[in-house]
Simulated assay, not measured.
Amino acid sequence: MIFSIPHDAHALPLSHACVTLLTDYLNQAVQDQNPDRSITAATFNFRDPDYAPDKGGYHPVEIRVKVQGETGTLEYITDFSYVGTGQDCELDKEVDFDFTTGCCFVRYVGRYALEDMHNFYRIWEGNFMNYIDMRVFHLDVTLETE
Rank of each mutant, 00 (worst) to 15 (best):
V95K: 07
R122I: 09
E144P: 00
D8E: 13
K66C: 06
I123W: 11
I123A: 13
T20I: 10
G110Q: 07
D48I: 03
T100Q: 02
H118E: 13
T73E: 13
D140T: 11
G57T: 02
D54S: 13
L22Y: 09
F97W: 08
F80I: 03
K55V: 10
L74T: 03
T100E: 06
N45G: 06
V109Y: 11
D116A: 08
S38M: 11
C104K: 00
D140F: 01
V95Y: 11
K66Y: 07
A29P: 01
V65W: 05
F128I: 07
P13G: 10
T145I: 12
F137G: 01
K93R: 14
D88W: 11
C89I: 09
G72Y: 01
H138G: 05
M1S: 08
I132G: 04
V30L: 05
A11W: 00
S4T: 14
E125F: 13
L139I: 05
D79A: 09
V95L: 13
L74C: 03
D8S: 15
Q87T: 09
N34Y: 07
E94D: 14
Y121D: 05
P35E: 07
R111Q: 10
D48M: 05
L14D: 09
C89F: 07
D116K: 08
L114D: 03
A17R: 12
I123G: 10
Y112V: 02
A42Q: 02
Y121R: 05
G86L: 00
D54H: 15
K93I: 12
M117Q: 08
C103P: 03
F44S: 00
R122D: 12
A9Q: 09
N27Q: 00
S81K: 14
P6A: 06
T43A: 10
D92Y: 09
Q31N: 09
H138P: 01
T73H: 14
S15K: 14
Y131K: 15
N130T: 15
P35L: 06
I63G: 01
I123M: 10
T101Y: 00
F46T: 00
T100Y: 03
Q68W: 04
T142H: 11
V65T: 05
I123Y: 12
T43K: 12
P13Y: 06
D79I: 11
A52M: 12
Y121T: 04
F137V: 02
E144G: 09
V141Q: 00
R64A: 04
I63P: 01
F44H: 04
Y82W: 15
G102S: 01
N34H: 13
N130S: 12
S38Y: 07
G84A: 04
S38G: 08
D96S: 07
D140H: 04
F44Q: 02
F46L: 05
